[in-house]
Design a protein around this nucleic acid. Structure first.
Lengths: 214, 214
DNA sequence: TCAGACATGTAAGTCGTTACATGATTCA
DNA sequence: TGAATCATGTAACGACTTACATGTCTGA
């Protein structure tokens, strides 16, 4: 009854890009989409087995010359139908549990410097991510123009899959770029919020608190 | 070893506002901070019991006249120390799993209208939240100016706690407002992203796709 | 030869939700 | 009298992470 776990569809979806092993899938997530997704081996392998049991993916041994044996998983037509069904299903409103905001909220009755320190820490975290993302953005934006993907992405997207199914590398680059920009937009907005919040907190430092200095 | 669950500190923190029952805590979260936090009874009650066992909160029966018996939980000095320790500890970098972005990413090799439909659905979700938050913002902003909290918030923050410990309602209103604005800033940035993404997708509709119509 | 990447998996535990179960009080 | 709210809890399940366990191959 309950909707299948998201890992289920994440794997199905990544396999719709190209056949991969469990290890490949992990790498794809880490290298390509870690700014909005994560997978752990503890979910990955059991889920792959279940997907194979249900016929949504097929497993075959890949004994490439010289390389260690591995399992290559390929999405089946049934799996593809399942994936498409999910893609078209309504978005689950995500339940939010934001640790930073919880701390910020709870700090408000503590001395003001503590809230400000927290903001500073948050800002530093946001900024370091912003720096990373900005670098990637430059690379990806140029990939969208030239169709020449950066090596680490190129290795993810896979080779052409026969006539009429050629990989449109600009389009692929674009989707990487757009998901990244979602993150960028979010980061920038939150950095601005930090500025504003700091101003507000400083402005409100208990005007005429009884017993305060002076 | 592992840091204690966040529910642990969330409860401790809310009890630092004022003594509450399990039911009160649930209401506080739902009414006051649902835009960045959630708690379920299944976590709440067991955690309250464990907090009491460890002496971080104290439990007492509250048999107010006419009202059903309930347990009132009060944070202890030990609990307060624990809370402060957590507030000052480094922020955990949160692991991200964004279903919208996953779907968007995976839709990119599907027909363009599907990606656009997804964006539309996302936008609608963001907009409806924006409308809610905007309403609350008006109310809270005026509360910051006047010190007069809206009734549903007023009932959360509690009464004055003796001399020198009066509740600064403006400061309380401010923190509600600021956390809300964090959400607002995020929503607005993401709505803008939707606009941009839509433009990009429309612009890239496979210029001269072989075998496409006409 | 040794580090690092490749490769697959399991076990245990944590965190959390949902659904269930129960019952009192209040107010229309 | 019946619905809504107040009030507390448990059981079962689901999702996910971490740490562990094992072994190969490649290249410096």
């Amino acid at each position: 009854m309950a909707a299948r776990q998201r890992t289920w569809y994440a794997i199905l979806g990544l396999l719709s890009w190209k056949p991969m092993s469990g290890y490949d899938l992990k790498k794809f997530v880490e290298v390509g989409i870690s700014h909005f997704w994560s997978e752990s081996y503890g979910q990955l392998f059991p889920t792959l087995n279940r997907l194979a049991d249900e016929g949504l993916v097929s497993r075959r041994r890949d004994t490439g010359r010289g390389r260690r044996m591995r399992h290559l998983y390929t999405i089946t037509p049934k799996g593809r139908r399942e994936l498409i069904g999910w893609l078209q299903a309504p978005l689950q409103p995500l339940q939010v549990r934001n640790e930073l905001l919880l701390k910020f909220f709870l700090s408000c009755r503590r001395p003001a410097p503590e809230s400000l320190r927290l903001l500073g820490e948050y800002r530093a975290q946001l900024e370091s991510r912003l720096a990373e993302y900005t670098d990637s953005e430059v690379v990806l934006a140029s990939a969208v123009r030239t169709g020449h993907l950066p090596a680490e992405i190129e290795s993810l997207v896979g080779v052409d899959r026969g006539p009429g199914r050629s990989v449109d590398r600009r389009r692929d680059a674009l989707v990487f770029l757009l998901t990244l920009r979602h993150g960028l937009a979010t980061l920038r907005a939150r950095l601005q919020w930090c500025d504003e919040a700091e101003v507000e907190l400083r402005a409100r430092r208990r005007p005429t608190a009884r017993g305060a200095r002076s």
